[in-house]
């Protein structure tokens, strides 16, 4: 108990103990429970799963691990497809965010301080307004008699409304739109620390501006790009709201599958198994993100 004693005695220990214990209880411990339930059977009871530990006739505890849920996930093509599709969608969205977000972050970082603050505010503002409402806005824009179709038809570019809502396209638009600020902000934070004189030095040594960008800016903003990409990619893999609202009924996203298994099918163990598989897939990326963050803050010191 030496460790505990030390914590209580030193004021420092007390400072971190509260958030530490909180996160241990409400963030880490639940994953163990999810893991446990992913190994149990579906039951029609409340809660709808069978306990792992059972008192056997001989008054001993028997652990009944079953891998049925996992086996089920791997045999049903639907889940595999959903996993692959989720990764594909998240990857493409991340690349799109990079293509749109990099020039924006760069432009903001190279503006005068006053302009920079205003532009930054404009990036942050949508981030503070409800994601749900902003995704909803795209329904109004994309649907058959929505704003975009109405405009295109009224100027005579098309004669029949384009089918955009409930498609893969709408889902990409929604994800990129929602996650763009998450990409821009860490990248901006990185670019803002850039010593722009390095670009002058590169030009002085014979680089054309685009060469200087490619040889100096891009490699030096690597950590910003990585941090932004992780902030888009990881949550996008498990995204539920956007596919549910904008994607078609066949938009197979793993977050949506988990939701449906849980709420519609009440298959808690299956949902748990889905969550565990998703976690196994995403944890390496999260650790990568953390190490990138650590490098960033070490670099800025």
């Amino acid at each position: 108990m030496g460790f505990l004693k030390k914590i209580v005695v030193s004021g420092r220990g007390l400072v971190v103990a509260l958030p530490y214990l909180w996160l241990l209880l409400f963030f880490v411990a639940p994953f163990l429970i999810v893991l446990k339930i992913s190994f149990s059977d579906v039951d029609l009871a409340i809660p709808p799963y069978k306990p792992l530990l059972e008192w056997t006739a001989k008054n001993a505890v028997a652990v009944k691990l079953n891998f049925n849920n996992y086996a089920f996930l791997f045999t049903d093509e639907l889940y595999l497809k959903a996993f692959i599709n989720s990764i594909k969608v998240a990857l493409v969205s991340t690349v799109l965010c990079l293509l749109i977000g990099y020039p924006m972050a760069y432009g903001i970082a190279r503006s005068r301080p006053v302009t920079r603050n205003i532009l930054l505010l404009l990036v942050i503002l949508p981030f503070w307004t409800s994601l749900l409402l902003r995704v909803y806005a795209w329904i109004g824009l994309l649907k058959a008699n929505g704003v975009i179709n109405n405009i295109l038809m009224s100027v005579g570019l098309i004669h029949e409304p384009l089918v955009m809502l409930y498609t893969q396209f709408a889902m990409y638009v929604g994800i990129v739109y929602s996650y763009l600020p998450f990409f821009i902000l860490p990248l901006y934070a990185n670019l803002e620390k850039m010593d722009w004189q390095l670009l002058e030095a590169a030009q002085d040594l014979g680089c054309k501006p685009y060469q200087a960008f490619y040889k100096i800016t891009l490699p030096l903003s690597r950590n910003g790009i990585l941090a932004g990409s992780m902030l888009v990619f990881i949550p996008a893999v498990g995204e539920f709201v956007i596919p549910a609202l904008l994607g078609g009924p066949n938009a197979l996203m793993i977050g949506r599958i988990l939701w449906d298994e849980f709420f519609s099918n009440r298959a808690w163990p299956v949902a748990s198994a889905v969550a565990i598989l998703m976690l196994i897939m995403l944890v390496p990326f999260m650790m990568w993100y953390q190490s990138v963050q650590a490098r960033e803050s070490a670099g800025s010191r």
Binding site: V34, L231, P235, V237, G238, E239, L258, W259, A275, M278
Partner: peptide, 9 residues
């Protein structure tokens, strides 16, 4: 970064 469906579940 944790997908919300996992945290929620």
């Amino acid at each position: 970064v944790m997908p919300e469906v996992i945290t929620g579940l």
